[in-house]
Deep mutational scan, measured.
Amino acid sequence: QLRFETNGEEQAKKVLEEAKKHNLEAHVTIENGKWVVHVK
């Protein structure tokens, strides 16, 4: 499982879109005010 700390909602959405293009499972959590994308 990969973990990407992003700078906010915009970047998190871009990472999610990329993951979906590659048929990867991804979800976002907010940790300590940071948007974190988890990709399987």
Rank of each mutant, 00 (worst) to 15 (best):
Q1P: 13
Q1D: 14
Q1K: 10
Q1A: 14
Q1W: 15
L2Q: 09
L2E: 05
L2P: 02
L2I: 13
L2R: 09
L2T: 11
L2V: 11
L2D: 04
L2S: 08
L2W: 15
R3W: 07
R3T: 08
R3N: 04
R3D: 04
R3F: 05
R3E: 04
R3S: 07
R3H: 08
F4N: 02
F4D: 02
F4M: 04
F4R: 02
E5H: 06
E5Q: 06
E5K: 04
E5N: 05
E5D: 05
E5C: 14
E5L: 08
E5M: 07
T6R: 05
T6N: 03
T6I: 09
T6V: 15
T6E: 04
T6P: 03
T6Y: 14
N7Y: 12
N7P: 08
N7L: 12
N7Q: 12
G8P: 01
G8T: 15
G8K: 09
G8W: 10
G8C: 14
E9D: 05
E9G: 04
E9H: 07
E9M: 09
E9N: 04
E9Q: 09
E9F: 13
E9A: 10
E9W: 15
E9P: 15
E10N: 07
E10I: 08
E10P: 05
E10K: 08
E10T: 08
E10W: 12
E10Y: 10
E10A: 12
Q11D: 14
Q11C: 13
Q11N: 07
Q11T: 08
Q11V: 07
Q11A: 13
Q11F: 09
Q11M: 12
Q11G: 10
A12M: 07
A12F: 03
A12I: 03
A12D: 00
A12L: 07
K13E: 07
K13N: 13
K13S: 09
K13A: 11
K13F: 13
K13W: 13
K13V: 09
K13Y: 14
K13Q: 13
K13I: 12
K13R: 13
K14V: 11
K14M: 13
K14T: 08
K14I: 13
K14D: 05
K14Y: 13
K14W: 14
V15M: 14
V15H: 05
V15L: 15
L16G: 01
L16V: 12
L16S: 03
L16M: 13
E17A: 13
E17W: 11
E18H: 14
E18S: 12
E18R: 12
E18P: 00
A19P: 00
A19F: 14
A19G: 01
K20G: 06
K20I: 12
K20H: 12
K20W: 14
K20Q: 11
K21F: 09
K21N: 08
K21Y: 09
K21D: 04
K21A: 11
K21I: 07
H22I: 05
H22W: 14
H22T: 04
H22M: 13
H22P: 00
N23G: 15
N23T: 03
N23A: 08
N23M: 08
N23R: 09
L24I: 07
L24W: 12
L24F: 10
L24Y: 10
L24E: 02
L24P: 03
L24S: 03
L24T: 03
L24M: 11
E25L: 12
E25P: 07
E25R: 09
E25H: 11
E25I: 13
A26V: 09
A26M: 03
A26I: 04
A26S: 05
H27A: 07
H27C: 10
H27R: 09
H27Q: 09
H27E: 10
H27M: 10
V28L: 11
T29W: 06
T29V: 13
T29R: 06
T29M: 08
T29Y: 08
T29Q: 07
T29E: 09
T29A: 08
T29N: 05
I30T: 06
I30E: 07
I30P: 01
I30H: 10
I30W: 12
I30N: 08
I30Q: 10
I30F: 14
I30V: 12
E31H: 06
E31R: 05
E31M: 07
E31D: 06
E31P: 00
E31N: 04
E31Q: 07
N32S: 06
N32Q: 08
N32R: 04
N32G: 12
G33Q: 03
G33M: 03
G33F: 02
G33V: 00
G33D: 06
G33I: 00
G33H: 03
K34R: 11
K34I: 14
K34N: 06
K34M: 13
K34V: 14
K34S: 06
K34Q: 09
K34P: 00
W35A: 01
W35E: 01
W35T: 02
W35Q: 00
W35V: 03
W35R: 00
W35N: 01
W35I: 04
W35K: 00
V36F: 06
V36P: 00
V36A: 01
V36Q: 02
V36Y: 09
V36G: 01
V36K: 00
V37Y: 01
V37I: 08
V37W: 01
V37N: 01
V37M: 00
H38K: 06
H38N: 09
H38Y: 15
H38G: 01
H38I: 15
H38F: 14
V39N: 00
V39M: 06
V39A: 02
V39H: 01
V39S: 01
V39F: 10
K40T: 15
K40V: 14
K40Y: 15
K40N: 14
